[in-house]
């Protein structure tokens, strides 16, 4: 990923500032999480957004960017 974003607003689990790429991943996850919680979307959108959210969560979790309860969807 590119190094386009220079402003940091979060830290990873090790206390390091998020890189621009990491920040992008967290932002993406946050948006997908919020979208996947909606009840008013058609099943095709809800199910696939949930899948996408889970995949991005996996990247964020492995990169130690999030401190969420392990089982929550």
């Amino acid at each position: 990923m590119s190094d386009k974003k220079k402003e940091f607003y979060g830290k990873d689990l090790l206390g390091n500032d998020l890189t621009a790429d990491e920040q992008e991943l967290v932002e993406l996850y946050t948006r997908l999480k919020s979208l996947s919680a909606r009840q008013d979307l058609p099943p095709v959108a809800t199910a696939n957004v949930k899948q996408a959210m889970v995949m991005i969560w996996n990247a964020c979790n492995d990169l130690a960017l999030l401190n969420e309860e392990p089982g929550c969807d």
Partner: peptide, 8 residues
């Protein structure tokens, strides 16, 4: 397993 568990 839930979705996140399975992906992990």
């Amino acid at each position: 397993d839930g979705r996140k568990d399975w992906s992990w």
